[in-house]
Simulated assay, not measured.
Amino acid sequence: MTTDGPDLLVTAVEGSDAWRHTSYGFVHDDAHALLAPLGDPGAVEVTVDVDYDQQFDQAGLVLRAGAETWLKAGVEFSDGAPQLGAVVTLGRSDWSVSPVPEWAGRTVTVRASRSGDAVTVRARVDDEPFRLVRVAAFPPGVPVGAGPYCCAPTRAGLVVRFRRWATGPADAALH
C-alpha cells in the first residue's frame, strides 16, 4: 500500500481472492482489505478507478464479520468486460453480476448500507445517480469491519487506485 496525494494505491498479490466453497469447491480468504468498525445501522462508501482489465481483477468494498460471514461488492473484470456485482458469504459464497462495459476506465463509487437484517448495495459511475445492485440478508447485531478491498486471482501486477473511503449513517429508505 502506498499513497499518491489523497489516493490509496494497493498492489494486489497474484492469487489473492475471497470465496468460500460454492461451485468451485475452494476457499480463498486472502483479499486485500483495509477495515474499520462499521456501526449497525451504518453505511460505507468506496470510490475506485476501474482501470483494470484482466480476468477476475476486482475492487470495491467489503463488510466482514469473520471468515464465514462477509459481503464484497464492486466491479470485477470477468468474461471480457467489467461486471458490477456482489458476493455474499454466509457459510458459502454466492455471486451476482451485471455487465457494465461502459464503466471501463472510469471512477466508480460503491455504497453498502447496513440496517436490521440486510445490507443494501448501490453503485454509480462518475457523478451519475446510484443504482441498486442488491439487497442481501446479513446477520443483525454482529460487529463488522468495512472498507476498501481488492484482489487479483489470476495475475500479478494489479495496482488499484482508491480515491475515497467514508462511513456514515445508513440510508433512510430502500429506494
Rank of each mutant, 00 (worst) to 15 (best):
R134S: 09
R122M: 03
W70I: 07
G60N: 01
R131H: 10
E76D: 11
V100D: 12
A65V: 06
T109Q: 02
R64F: 02
D127N: 08
L84V: 10
F138R: 03
G116F: 07
G60V: 02
G60Y: 03
A146P: 06
V121K: 00
Y149A: 14
L63E: 00
V75T: 04
R122G: 03
E128N: 10
Q83L: 10
L84Q: 07
D79E: 14
A73K: 00
P82V: 12
W70P: 06
V142W: 10
T120K: 03
R124E: 11
V108E: 06
A59I: 04
A136M: 10
R122I: 00
F130C: 00
F138N: 00
G80C: 12
G85R: 06
L71P: 03
F130A: 02
S96C: 11
A137W: 06
V144W: 05
A67D: 15
A67G: 14
V110T: 10
F77P: 01
L61V: 04
G116M: 08
R92N: 14
A81R: 15
G66S: 11
R114A: 13
V87H: 08
R92P: 05
V97S: 15
G145S: 13
A59T: 05
P140E: 14
L71S: 01
R92H: 14
A67M: 09
R111N: 00
S96L: 12
